[in-house]
């Protein structure tokens, strides 16, 4: 993860649930590259075809509510989303995203300053999101150090792998 993330914006409303991100009928798909074809089929149908790597999702309150399915952030990551920003998140979606290494930023008031196609610039450590077109910006409390570190290594899988490798080296040293 870079400290400053910049990308083209797609906007969504409030209360987008995990069914709206990836429908229940796709939950038996294991390959993320298959999964990504169906992302936002209900909430934003033109997204799957039009998305470019690095695009940023900007949503309203309570993004990712509903079930605990990890398929939702998995599909977003697979299609190359650079960051997900929302006025607020549901608890398990937020955790799942960070654990998968998908930058996830909660910034109250952010939805109001963006329109589709704008460019967003997110300064992760400084805690600001700016609309490059209009100059408008909102501040957010930066993620705690521990979570920034988790994003930097790419999520929980590489993080635990590093830790286990270090432990194995320690044991054989």
């Amino acid at each position: 993860m870079q400290d400053v993330i910049e990308g083209r914006v797609w906007v969504l409303g409030a209360d987008v649930d995990t069914d709206g991100i990836i429908g229940g009928k796709y939950l038996t798909i294991i390959d993320p590259n298959e999964l990504k074809k169906h992302v936002f089929e209900i909430a934003l149908p033109e997204f799957a075809k039009g998305a470019l790597p690095g695009d940023i999702i900007v949503a309203g309150e309570n993004f990712g509510c509903g079930s605990s399915r990890e398929h939702a952030p998995q599909a977003l990551r697979a299609i190359g989303v650079g960051a997900v920003v929302a006025d607020s998140f549901a608890r398990i979606f937020f955790r799942n995203s960070i654990n998968l290494g998908l930058p996830t930023v909660e910034a109250s008031g952010v939805r109001a300053i963006f329109e589709k196609g704008d460019t967003a610039r997110i300064a992760m450590r400084a805690g600001t999101i700016t609309n490059v077109r209009t100059g408008a910006s909102v501040r957010f409390p930066p993620l705690p150090h521990h979570l920034l570190e988790l994003l930097e290594v790419g999520g929980l899988v590489p993080k635990v792998r590093q830790e286990l490798e270090a432990r194995a080296r320690g044991a054989s040293a």
Partner: peptide, 29 residues
């Protein structure tokens, strides 16, 4: 791995639902 794991808080415990990737980390560490 289920969102209603909260039920077990009735024992005077913290019981919470988590996603499968973090469960993998729990199993490992």
């Amino acid at each position: 791995t289920d969102s209603h794991t909260n039920m077990l808080g009735a024992m005077g415990a913290v019981a919470a639902g988590i996603g499968p990737t973090e469960m993998a980390a729990v199993l490992a560490l």
